[in-house]
Design a protein around this nucleic acid. Structure first.
Length: 447
DNA sequence: ATTCCACAGGAAGCGACGGCCC
DNA sequence: GGGCCGTCGCTTCCTGTGGAAT
């Protein structure tokens, strides 16, 4: 039996608190008796610990505040377009564009809630239904979700699959058309939907005699509508609202307004909010990022028993957020995708060791991945499939992929690892030990 | 101007899976 | 229980591509 390691439950400094994972790992080696003993006082608050938060939830990006600073124009515009719903007339379909964290979803939820409440007060049937198309990207999933939200408490559950699209479509449209009502269907991340689904949804009103459905598509991509079929383009883009990125000053206002409600007074040093705003403004004015930075900074200070959140914690928070994000992504990847990441990482380390200039290319990655897969007793996937993985890693921000032409020597993709934390994260991966012994067969070729 | 390389990436199709309907 | 459905992960096949080399 392994003896109990000396564990300090609450680290003294922010740096120490960042190594919480190590502490947890050490803790896992404790015996059941030791576990029991160590948890008795685990959640007792020490005298020097202080609540810095009043309500942590208010700094969560998903929280919709009562006031949305610097979005008054968009709110009014959206409300004007949706106004006919109060007369049980279908508003125009709307497109909301803007980069991530510019308040599109928050604004829509805010206006949607107001509209629904107004409708209810007037005894009108107005429903605003949100669907995240990242999760529901096919017509079947959208209809299933729509039906499920409409029936709500009924026992008539719509199955996740098994029905034909026609059956499901008839079932849902019949259910919607039972009375005179307006449904505002908000399709968040609408660019993730397949074309057929979008086309069917734009034509859905043809099925109704009483009810009406209006679409609100939210997208991060300005070219979203341009890429659609002409039939979809005409009916989708009836009204457009563009959400510009927040600048540092606007982000500062947002943070100030939220922190006044979410945090204890006088716990932020003067530089914290300007720094969080400036860092988030550099990332295309992402309010979510700014809120995350502030929340994590305060959490780190709280864990370090500090009564004042200084700029130091913002810097630490920035590193922690990035590392946590990549680690979370990597942890949830399937084995084959992690094998490809290991191949990329090993090649990167090899390039550094040998001081080899230039970027890693897909051919090298694929051949090294094959070696690793065989060594770990997995059947290697095709190069086509691996190319798709690389595209996904790029989208996730783990690598940067750039298609280049090497003239007579063909076309390829240059890969650079974007995250400085990747090597460390992969060392904790269960595959690491398994493939660590594998030598790079193509070492000479690579040089 | 043409050739050639090493892929990129689209399209089609396959098989497994979970689940419904008759 | 068999037929059917949509989805997902994957393969195979194919055409397209950019620019150095010829």
């Amino acid at each position: 039996m392994v003896s109990t390691p000396s564990i300090e439950v609450v680290p003294k400094t922010a740096e120490q608190s960042l190594s919480t994972n190590t502490l947890i790992q050490q803790n896992q080696s404790c015996s059941p008796i030791d576990d029991k003993r160590s948890t008795i006082h685990l959640f007792d608050r020490t005298p020097q610990q202080k609540h810095l938060f009043i309500n942590r939830e208010l700094l969560s990006p998903s929280y919709i505040p009562e006031v949305l600073p610097h979005r008054e124009k968009e709110i009014n515009e959206l409300a004007q377009i949706l106004f006919p719903a109060l007369d049980i007339q279908a508003p125009s379909n709307i497109l909301l564009y803007g980069k991530p964290g510019t308040g599109k979803t928050a604004t829509m939820k805010f206006v949607g809630a107001e509209l629904q409440a107004h409708g209810k007060a007037q005894g009108k049937r107005i429903y605003v239904l949100h669907i995240n198309c990242e999760l529901c990207n096919s017509l079947y999933r959208i209809l299933q979700h729509l039906g499920q939200q409409l029936i709500n408490n009924s026992q008539d559950i719509i199955p996740l699959n098994g029905l034909s699209i026609d059956t499901l479509f008839t079932k849902i449209t019949t259910r919607i058309d039972t009375c005179k009502q307006i449904i505002i269907l908000v399709l968040d991340e609408a660019d993730k939907i397949c074309d057929d689904a979008l086309y069917t949804l734009t034509r859905i009103n043809e099925q109704f005699r009483q009810a009406r459905v209006s679409l609100v598509c939210i997208s991060n991509y300005l070219k979203f509508v341009e890429l659609q079929d002409a039939r979809i383009r005409s009916s989708l883009g009836e009204e457009n609202i563009i959400f510009n990125s927040y600048d540092a000053e606007q982000l500062r206002d947002i943070l100030t307004s939220r922190s006044e409600q979410a945090l204890q007074p006088n716990i932020l040093s003067d530089s914290v909010i300007p720094l969080c705003s400036a860092l988030a403004a550099q990332e295309h004015g992402d309010a979510r990022r700014a809120l995350d930075l502030l929340r994590v900074s305060v959490e780190l200070a709280e864990r370090s028993h500090d009564h004042l959140v200084s700029a130091k914690y913002v810097r630490l928070a920035q590193n922690k957020i990035e590392k946590d994000r990549i680690a979370e992504v990597v942890r949830n990847l399937p084995t084959q995708e992690r094998l490809v990441l290991h191949a990329i990482n090993r090649l990167q380390q090899y390039y550094i060791r040998k001081k080899k200039a230039g970027a890693i290319i897909t051919g090298e990655i694929y051949s090294h991945y094959r070696e690793l897969a065989k060594a770990a007793h997995y059947t290697p996937l095709t190069q086509r499939r691996v190319a798709d993985f690389l595209f996904v890693f790029d989208a996730l921000g783990i690598i940067t992929a750039r298609v280049i032409s090497k003239g007579r020597y063909g076309r390829t993709t240059e890969i650079a690892v974007s995250s400085t934390e990747l090597a460390g994260i992969l060392q904790d991966d269960e595959l690491f030990e398994e493939i660590e012994q594998v030598k790079m067969k193509n070492q000479m070729k690579l040089l």
